[in-house]
Write a protein that binds this DNA or RNA. Structure first.
Lengths: 244, 244
DNA sequence: GTTGCCGGTTTGTCCGACAATCATACGATC
DNA sequence: GATCGTATGATTGTCGGACAAACCGGCAAC
């Protein structure tokens, strides 16, 4: 008796336009760096108003698929930058009530194997970058902000050294979420700095020797230290994370 | 001699508007489900034109921060849905030339501990879902599309069972990227189906018994099987992944 | 070589307009 | 009383046109 109809989807024009352009980019028909036609021209080609094209461009822009290159008015095709994608992920996770424990658990899972992969795949350039990052961290004074940033930077160098974009990107939102709590922790726990330094120094040595096991082990300790730091700082692990 | 000035950034109004609204959402001043004022009203409040507001809304919309609830014209605040965030990640990774090996390596790292976490944290509802998913997979006929989809669905259930949004979200883009190659593999390698079924049956049992080690072990085998399947299917691991 | 100016292009923003859709209320009909 | 039709107002999607500001390339001037 009950006749069922499939949902009818009416898509506004601006989304169709965005989809059309986005598909061309994903299929690499439009290559990176290529410049998009002007808005009026796009409006002509799609047979819609310029306002409609602009709404579509805003969507593509926020997905990181198009970008205005500095010193140019025309939009050009771009690959989504790691940091901006990661920011989207971080925001999503924040709104989904991620706890400190959730974050820490993910770090526990991801980081040690990542360090291992970095020790295996690192080139000499990667090593140089890691060493530079470690030295910068070691030379940090009392500036908490800087200490946090440089600690995260070390992780990023390791991610880059894996030469695996999946791992590097997976790590980025975790770092973004980590920073605020790390800031509190470093401020409240005096010995945190030296423990971080020690762990990261051993990581550098492991990378230097391409010793995968040592890299994995020290990273595991490093992450475990974070948890201890949270406890010492009196941070409740079941608490929701807050925005940076 | 060379006087240095810091870069001056001029942000267009539509981005400022988007930032203003986005910040309110992230800080939870605007709560989920709450309805945004009408476009004309927003334009009045911000002192800009409605077109400008609309461009800002398109950005927020594509970030998943606002959404139109079915049967309502007003936008309402929403949390970014896992699938849509993951789609963004997948696209980013695709454009960054991720190889089959990169993806497989990430799965190797993430999935076994995820299965372990699922075995630890699963509730009886989670278990019921996993069992239902496994039965659906077992009841799949010759339909490749369905087999692929249900295989991925099992992973999703496990992710949900961890009760850790970070893990669940980290997994999703990997699944989205996995599906196309899995399709090819299942088509070309006859024994793939039964191997998948076996592994997933053992996973269900491990979850049932809350046997963390067994869950981890079987998942590791499961993922290792994928690699073997790729080799048998003649898929070059160093090849770039393609869009779904 | 640098500077300044000029014309054409493109974006950012605005204004005004209108059809289609939805919410709501109010009767009308059975 | 429940369902339906309709009137009314609010809101979105889309359109057309407008204009200042910024940028580009070229050319002249210093």
């Amino acid at each position: 008796m009950s006749v069922e109809f499939t949902q009818i989807q009416i898509e506004p024009a601006y989304r169709k336009v965005a989809a059309a352009i986005g598909e061309r980019i994903l299929s690499r028909t439009l290559r990176e760096g290529e410049r998009l036609p002007a808005e009026t021209e796009l409006a002509r080609q799609f047979g819609v108003n310029r306002s409609t094209v602009r709404e579509a461009l805003r969507e593509l822009e926020s997905r990181g698929l198009v970008q205005r290159r500095p010193g140019s008015k025309l939009m050009s095709v771009s690959r989504p930058q790691q940091a901006s994608v990661a920011a989207g992920i971080s925001h999503a996770l924040l709104l989904h009530d991620v706890t400190v424990r959730d974050l820490w658990e993910a770090l526990t899972i991801l980081e040690p194997p990542l360090a291992r992969a970095a020790a295996r795949a690192r080139t000499s350039e990667d090593l140089a970058r890691v060493i530079a990052a470690a030295e910068a961290l070691g030379a940090t004074g009392d500036d908490t902000e800087q200490a946090v940033h440089r600690t995260a930077q070390m992780f990023r160098c390791l991610g880059q050294a894996t030469h695996n974009p999946v791992l590097a990107l997976a790590q980025e939102p975790l770092l973004q979420l980590l920073e605020p709590s790390l800031r509190v922790m470093i401020d409240k726990v005096p010995q945190a700095r030296s423990r971080i330094l020690t762990a990261q120094r051993h990581l550098v040595e492991a990378l230097q020797a391409q010793d995968e096991s040592a890299a994995e082990t020290w990273m595991a300790r490093h992450i475990r230290d974070f948890k201890r730091g949270y406890e010492l700082a009196g941070i409740d692990l079941t608490l929701r994370l807050t925005a940076a």
